[in-house]
Amino acid sequence: MTRLNRPRLQSQANLLLIYLIMIVVVTVITFPYFYMISMALMTEAESAAIPGRFLPAIPQWQNFQVAWGRIQGLRPYLNTLIVAGGVTLVQLFTSSLAGFGFAKYRFPGRDLVFLLLLGSMTIPLFINIIPWFWMINQIDINNTLLGVMAPHFVTAFGVFMMRQFMLDIPDDLIDAARMDGASEFMIYRTVALPLCGPALATLGAFAFLYHWNDLLWPLIVLSDRANWTINLAVLALQGYMGVSRYLQIAGGAMSVIPVIILVIVLQRYFVQGTALSGIKG
């Protein structure tokens, strides 16, 4: 990791200024999160006070308790975990398998399929909803978590990303494995996959996040409250035309907290993936 060396800026004063700017920036960026929690702790009257209040007079911790009870506790979290986790695992498998195929094999139609794959990334996702819903009805998985997951088992972006990664695997390594008599699938499993650990982690982290946050599709699929994901449960906290906004904010905070933890724990992979998206595409 090299860094630009700019001697003219290297005075203490400059460093102080930079810290100051960064602190301001981070304050601005994290402010909505703190405010979310502050608002979640307000009373009905405080949340509708004019002008808006920064902090509640007495934190109403029971708001979280009420919201927790209304979303039926742990249940939507588990549902979301199943959906996001399941999609992530399947995507990792399909993406790495196809990425390996696209990167390391030549076969007729390869480039055409790959081009289609790239092109499919620009399709407005919205167009799929009606056909998808019809399809999951045909195989009788409407109103199930599997129905939410199924259309997302393959991701063009994931395949693309894994291919870019696997292109860097030296061919010698693969040939050496072949010499040892490994089957092609074994090469994928024992040579390619282990080398792609960071890429898989990155892809997985992003996939999990995306499906944790997804709303429209689960909303269409899941009519049964018992199957609701966290976003759906939070949506149901909304009051009548703007009333009890603090409850929905409390729910929103509860749905965001796991995401914040995830970002902190997996930050290396998120950063890696972010950087990758700029450099490699």
């Binding site: 909803i129 009606i130 019809w134 909303l219 269409i220």
Partner: peptide, 8 residues
């Protein structure tokens, strides 16, 4: 959206 998809 719910009513429309329901019908499918």
């Amino acid at each position: 959206a719910r009513v429309a998809t329901d019908q499918l």
